[in-house]
């Protein structure tokens, strides 16, 4: 497998606001993240609000320059945002957001919007572009009669399909999806998830799938990375990590997924709120909420360590072959 996208010890630091007498602390939105998205495979990124998962998506697309570390796309360093090289590269990597109505231009027809990236990147003549748009509409399951409509005349599911058709127009190698189905109703969500999986398989697209919904992430992802306060705390094959989580935070997240038919008593309820990225706790950032924290956790920051089954876990208590539940 070849790495299409590689992040190496990437950090994004937003400087704190300077007041008259003091300066607010810097916010390390993403802190020392290394990961790989392989061609044709899906990496799921999970975590709660403020964990840095959306910033990570922006870093992956080169929309943000990392403060530290290196982002590589297809073996070459990511060019600076706005540069010609970066613009050319954007045809090969696309972004899909949660809110399709915000991502679409209300004044343009669906067909025009799907055609736009082709125009921008100078792909094909007018006839070829029209044919391509027609094919894309079919691929995402939108009827031809919708091509001339405006976004407000479409349902939420149809809009997200249109956004996807536009993202696929330039035949990208990488798709970054940030909460793409979170705003959709269950029955529509299933349609879009199925379509996303089908299109990805058919076209061999690599995908970074960012979501707070663990059930959807498990459905689409080959590998997952769990983030807490800017860092990856657990990373590995989706079936391993989500079926038998090792990090106490992943365990709490997985147990918090409300599932019909499962009783609430098996749930681990964490105390406290997700921490403020501007006031990061010492040591392991999770230790104030961790049900199994030991003294060392407040002092020493755990690093990601490889486990025998291939996953990595950043927890002092994670031992090979040790069950944290014990």
């Amino acid at each position: 497998m070849t790495a299409l996208l590689r992040l190496d010890a990437v950090a994004k630091i937003y400087p704190g606001q300077r007041g008259l007498f003091h300066k607010a602390p810097d916010v390390r939105a993403v802190d020392g993240v290394s990961l790989v998205v392989e061609a044709g495979r899906t990496l799921g990124i999970v975590g709660e609000s403020g964990c840095g998962k959306s910033t990570l998506g922006r870093l992956a697309l080169g929309l943000e320059r990392p403060s530290e570390g290196l982002v590589e796309f297809d073996g070459a360093p990511m060019p600076p945002p706005g540069s010609d090289a970066w613009r050319r590269l954007r045809a090969r990597m696309q972004l899909v957001f949660q809110d399709p109505l915000g991502a679409l231009d209300r004044r343009l027809t669906i067909a025009r919007q799907i055609e736009e990236p082709l125009v921008i990147h100078g792909i094909g003549d007018a006839a070829a572009r029209r044919a391509r748009v027609a094919q894309l509409l079919i691929d995402v399951g939108l009827g031809e009669n919708l091509a001339a409509r405006h976004p407000h005349a479409l349902s939420g599911g149809q809009r997200q399909r249109a956004v996807l058709a536009r993202a696929l127009a330039t035949d990208p190698a990488l798709l970054v999806c940030d909460e793409p189905v979170s705003a959709l109703d269950v029955s529509i969500q299933a349609q879009v998830v199925n379509m996303l999986i089908d299109l990805q398989k058919a076209r061999g697209i690599a995908m970074m799938f960012i979501s707070h919904d663990l059930k959807v992430v498990r459905q689409v992802s080959d590998t997952v990375a769990v983030m807490y306060l800017g860092r990856i705390v657990e990373q590995g094959e989706a079936d391993q990590v989500l079926a038998a989580p090792q990090h106490p935070y992943t365990r709490a997240l997985v147990s918090a997924v409300p599932t019909p038919g499962r009783t609430a008593r098996e749930r681990i309820v964490l105390v406290g709120d997700p921490p403020n990225p501007a006031a990061r706790p010492s040591g392991c950032a999770f230790h104030p909420r961790c049900p199994v924290a030991i003294a060392a956790c407040a002092v020493e920051t755990p690093t990601l360590r490889a486990m025998p089954d291939g996953r990595s876990v950043a927890c002092h208590l994670a031992q090979p072959n040790m069950d944290l539940a014990a």
Partner: peptide, 22 residues
């Protein structure tokens, strides 16, 4: 249909059974 459209956290992954239409 609603229950079949939900992804699951345990067991083998299966294709979601989407309810067609809106």
């Amino acid at each position: 249909g609603l229950l079949a459209a939900l992804p699951e956290m345990i067991g083998p992954r299966r294709r979601l059974e989407a309810i067609q239409g809106a």
